[in-house]
């Protein structure tokens, strides 16, 4: 397989992190998103302040979420090497990665809908905003299962030369726990576990960005290692 294509897929990991965080910064969602306790008018004001800039940010973010797919594809290629002819974890990882990409794109579009018609009633904007933020943070199951699948595949790798280093498995398991507070915004309108709280918003985004960057760089190293080994023969 073409080393260049593999490297492009690997770099889509760090690109995903940078573009998504950059897009959210442009949309004013970073560093402080509209809070769960805000009144409808306050929420509406967030979307009507600088509409063009906000929409540009959401457009950029929703497009760049797509970088999750090539990264998922490359992870699958390396996972199948670990698993061989019964690649259950590979398929699990692949479907979960696809779901994560879709689930993270949808809230960006819902936020764009909020900014699309700023003259809409504030209550309706609040409703869409609630839907967008709960959709952004609470569906963590695909992500947790994806990380667990990656970790289990690495632990069960029986190749004489391990396909990926074992610490990557442990790092993936750690990320599962970092994502767990993502379930809590259902219950809170204020405090650190609401969607704008530090343990959901910042921890969630930092973990996702960190995971994409880590997997991209680790796979880049593996791709280069493969290319060097192939050239050496």
């Amino acid at each position: 397989m073409n080393t260049t294509i593999k490297l492009l897929c690997a770099w889509s990991g760090p690109a995903l992190a940078i573009a998504v965080l950059g897009g959210l910064l442009l949309a004013n969602v970073l560093p402080f998103p509209p809070a769960a306790f805000m009144s409808p008018d306050e929420i509406a004001r967030f979307y009507t302040q600088s509409t063009t800039r906000t929409l540009t940010g959401f457009a950029l973010t929703s497009f760049c979420m797509g970088f999750a797919f090539p990264l998922t594809g490359l992870i699958a290629v390396y996972l199948v090497r670990m698993e061989g002819r019964t690649p259950i974890l590979t398929f699990t990882q692949l479907s979960c990665g696809a779901a994560t990409g879709v689930l993270l794109t949808t809230p960006m579009i819902l936020m764009a809908v909020c900014a699309f018609r700023p003259d809409r009633s504030p209550e309706l904007i609040q409703l869409l905003n609630d839907a967008a933020y709960l959709l952004l943070f609470t569906p963590i199951a695909p992500f947790c299962i994806q990380n667990t699948a990656i970790a289990m595949a690495i632990f069960n790798d029986r190749n004489p030369q391990p396909v990926l280093p074992r610490w990557v498995a442990f790092a993936n398991l750690w990320l599962v726990f970092l994502f767990l507070p993502g379930l809590l915004p259902f219950f809170f309108h204020e405090g650190p576990f609401a969607w704008h709280g530090v343990f959901v918003f910042w921890l969630g985004l930092a973990s996702f960005g960190g995971w994409a960057t880590m997997m991209g760089l680790v796979l880049r190293q593996a791709v280069l290692h493969d290319a060097a080994a192939a050239a050496g023969t």
Partner: peptide, 20 residues
Amino acid sequence: APAPPAATAAPDLHQSGLWI
């Protein structure tokens, strides 16, 4: 794959990865 040259070999952390 021949034994990889030391410079490109992935760090061999094995169980010490648990501490991460």
